[in-house]
Design a protein around this nucleic acid. Structure first.
Lengths: 197, 197
DNA sequence: TTTCCGACTGAGTGCTCAGTCGGTTTTTTT
DNA sequence: AAAAAAACCGACTGAGCACTCAGTCGGAAA
């Protein structure tokens, strides 16, 4: 990350929290200005418009997710694919907790509406999902080689597991119930789902 | 449903589609007016404000979900809890497809923001989720009695299964990938997850 | 026939908002 | 130290917004 003015960084950080909690349309530049102490003019000096702030956040989020997942997984070796799967799930939940605002934005409708019409948004979203699903898939493939995971379609099962884990994160972020309380249940479920019969 | 003026029904229907696809804040009364052919004044004659339209939609959705699930499940008998679970999953996916706009709204951030501050919204959402999770839970309990489902925590496992199914619906509605293509995989996963070992 | 009422109308209103602009301050370069 | 560039400021603008209101209309009750 190249160095960035204090104000610009503050604007991005505040916008991330506000977009996540209030939504895009309901977050006003005046608010962003008062929260960060930057004048409205300053915001438009750094970003050509409101949408561009969101795109920057999404792009930064993509970089964080792709980099951190790769770094975390490269760091360690796994005996079995099933172990790797458990680690992917655990790291996903941990990471989503650390990046709560970013994941809230990823779970928001407005980002998908933009993705439909704007390639810059779509590309970032696709990169994020592809990276994540691929990790789940790799674990399944590895597990099928070493016998720790049964004979399932790797991509499809990866999507199902991803759906479960991501759904739990969403429920937690939407305050429906606490994902942490279901962690053990989730890991058990994944194990039962994937183990050879 | 008591009889309702043509215009009012048209406003509700159009608002459901617009709120679902464009979001609440990005749907303007002028649009609702031009789409339905009702004057803006007419909209405010039937609903005291924009939020009240959303509340009416949510409340109608709650009634539909609770009624239709109860009706569908009361209609049939199941040999085993596992069969019942499969039917709940299948009906959930079918129903979510039929009520795509309503489910999109249920998956939108704005509804949860309103639920935080407004009891009218919170109560409807809670009733919907409670009804749905309880069906999954009942299937598990029945399955544990007849031996078709293993020894898991019924409520927690119901939440996990609900997470999977609802997550799939969300992914489909957000155009991430087609839930239909994963239907068989999903049913298999649920079966493996819950079967006695 | 008159009265009344619910459904409906659309121009009008005041306000909120994203974005602009002319200028100042701070930092970097020479 | 001077000049240039980058960062910052906040009053201002005008478009667009939710909502209002005085009034029309058709049909049912009195």
């Amino acid at each position: 990350m190249t160095k960035m003015s204090k104000k610009k960084a503050a604007i991005l950080q505040a916008a991330t929290a506000l977009f996540a909690t209030k939504g895009f349309a309901d977050t006003h530049m005046s608010e962003l200005s008062s929260v960060t102490g930057a004048a409205e003019g300053t915001i438009f000096y750094h970003f050509k418009n409101k949408e561009h702030i969101l795109l920057t956040i999404l792009s930064d989020t993509k970089v964080s997710i792709v980099d951190e997942f790769n770094a975390h997984m490269d760091d360690r070796e796994f005996e079995t694919g099933m172990e790797m799967m458990e680690e992917v799930v655990a790291f996903y939940l941990l990471f989503a907790g650390r990046m709560e605002y970013q994941f809230l934005i990823l779970h928001s409708l407005f980002i998908y509406r933009l993705a439909e019409s704007r390639a810059e948004f779509r590309d970032n979203l696709e990169a994020i999902y592809d990276c994540l699903v691929t990790f789940f898939e790799q674990a399944i493939i590895k597990g099928q080689e070493d016998g720790s995971i049964g004979d399932v379609n790797p991509r499809k099962s990866a999507l199902i597991v991803f759906t479960m884990v991501d759904g739990l994160v969403r429920f937690k972020n939407f305050n429906l119930y606490d994902a942490g309380a279901l962690f053990n249940e989730l890991i058990d479920s994944v194990r039962r789902m994937l183990k050879p019969n």
